[in-house]
Design a binder for these strands. Structure first.
Lengths: 199, 199
DNA sequence: GAGTATACAAACCGCTTGGTCGGTTTGCAA
DNA sequence: TTGCAAACCGACCAAGCGGTTTGTATACTC
């Protein structure tokens, strides 16, 4: 049977509760006391697994937020028709997300806007995340370009970067609007853009 | 000569210093003590002009952030060629903004991401701001459509919304990257999109 | 010039925050 | 069975926060 103490489980529990709190309240406003009580874990346990709040934040970002985000892109870009893959990802997200998800927005975008200017660690993490996304998309576009799927004239790096920006912008407006209708129109706008890349 | 006490000047001073602090640190992390000491104003003065921090925040958003943002759009959309107007606005911004501006990002986007989920007032203010921008762009597109400047098939509302999202997304990535080069590529991407709307 | 509302000054307050630290319990190895 | 390190507990702390209150100086009105 499982032991009374399992450090991995404890750490994961803290991580997940912290992620949820930070998704809703942001990094700074996420209270350690609140996290501890919701995770049913003592302060001693937390500070045993993480040096301080900052490192907890970094871990949440890297192990949960970034991972979720990248896996979504991996799925979309693995489709044989990359453009359709992206569009399907958009409508899938729209179908799956709850009202709370809409209100909370994209955690990467939220943390980035809150912290990038005042914490170099978060700035590097978020920038790195965006670069990885852009790189993935760029490679997919280059592949598609060779296959004759997308127009030949386009600058794949620039386009990939703009697609990432489009996503983040949609996340921003989704959060600000709290409106599924707005989200739908925005997705339609991005889908149009993506499809116009087709050869 | 000017009186020793001028309530309007005092209020404006508080507003401007608060705006600067919130631009850098966000709303919650902007400290009233810090604002007061930088503005060389007492706590009594602040609480004479504003009921609480929240109302100060709302005033900063409405009277400074929103105004600056909207005036930029007004200028761009007043051009006879709206598409060029937007593109010029992009390159003007790029030329004028300092490294600090890049690092701080767009204050509307920053505040929106920080507060929209936890404060209905900020949520409404930011959404309203985005809607006004979108409306302005939509009307400009409709005008241009009648003039035969832009393609006839486009959905002006959806396109306008996506342009606003594109802007916010660029602001997000600009802040996260702290890189002028990235900003330039993003602007180029958006400019391409805007120009492809041309008839 | 008196009276009064406005405009400020600054000491003060309760509360929450992230973080510390001495002590205790658990699990495993020898 | 013993020994010890890892895991955890929770009382405690200083600092900073937004906000209140009491008092005073200025400016305008009559």
């Amino acid at each position: 049977m499982s032991p009374v103490r399992d450090p991995d489980v404890t750490r994961q529990k803290i991580l997940e509760v912290a992620a949820e709190e930070m998704r809703v309240h942001g990094y700074k406003a996420a209270s350690l006391s609140e996290i501890l009580s919701k995770a049913e874990v003592s302060k001693g346990a937390l500070y045993h697994h993480f040096a301080n709040k900052q490192e907890l934040g970094y871990a949440v970002f890297e192990e949960l937020y970034a991972e979720e985000c990248l896996s979504r892109w991996r799925g979309a870009l693995a489709q044989e028709d990359v453009l359709d893959g992206i569009c399907h990802m958009l409508s899938d997200f729209e179908d799956q997300c709850s009202d709370e998800d809409i209100a909370c927005g994209c955690p990467v975008n939220t943390i980035s806007q809150e912290m990038a200017a005042v914490d170099d660690g978060f700035q590097k993490q978020t920038f790195n995340m965006y670069q990885r996304q852009a790189r993935m998309i760029e490679e997919a576009l280059l592949r598609s370009s060779e296959q004759g799927l997308v127009k030949s004239g386009i600058d794949c790096e620039q386009t990939a970067l703009f697609i990432v920006a489009g996503f983040q912008g949609i996340a921003s407006m989704m959060k600000a609007s709290r409106s599924r209708e707005t989200l739908h129109k925005l997705h339609a706008g991005l889908a149009d853009y993506v499809q116009h890349l087709r050869a």
